[in-house]
Amino acid sequence: MANHSTSHPTHVQHHFVDSDQQFDSAKLGMWVFLVNEILFFGGLFCAYIVYRAWHPELFTQAATELNAFWGAVNTVVLIGSSLTVAMAIRSVQKNQIKGLKINLLITIALAVVFMVVKGFEYAHKFELGILPGELYTYEGIEHAQAAIFFSIYYMMTGIHALHVIIGIGLMWWIYVRANRGEFSSEYYTPVEITGLYWHLVDLIWIFLFPLLYLIE
């Protein structure tokens, strides 16, 4: 708590007393940011809930256009990547930089797999004419608001995918810094907070999957 210290390791910024204060601050700041993310997605979930409560039959019909199998595969892929991120943090905590780097690379690979699967899903829908809003031309679902369901679907999964892409970028940045030897068991704050971000991306998907794909 004191505002001074005698030994200032290089990774501690000048306005912090010690690396504990810096670590705790970064983590608290990240959690506050995650609260933000929850409410950001919250708006979309709210729109989803309102429309589902209005038109339950639309949601049951429209969900049949989504492939539960590939949704489940992607769920497992994201869970796997959450595991490898957790393992990456564990590695750096134990000063195993090689383990850190390997786990980061696996995480990136899994995130890419997720995006590829998503890409195929999107491509398939585009072919059928299932596009958001006014561009919607599909005739397989007889419901006045069918386009709105898919607008919600595209907004939710699209923004989630955007988060995955940002996550890949962050993970790559951590990997580069790890390569430069910046992290050790003494200092791994960026690894920890990137990990928190990635778990949140997983958390959101844990809800998106049953809400979008598993409506019978």
Binding site: L28, L34, V35, I38, L39, G42, C46, A86, G195, L196
Partner: peptide, 27 residues
Amino acid sequence: FFMNLYWDTKFNAMLLIMGVAFFLLMV
């Protein structure tokens, strides 16, 4: 367990709960 809230300070867990609570209020 992945985000370590179980071992972390309670305040961070409270933040998460608060975020969810305000989302529920909105809905």
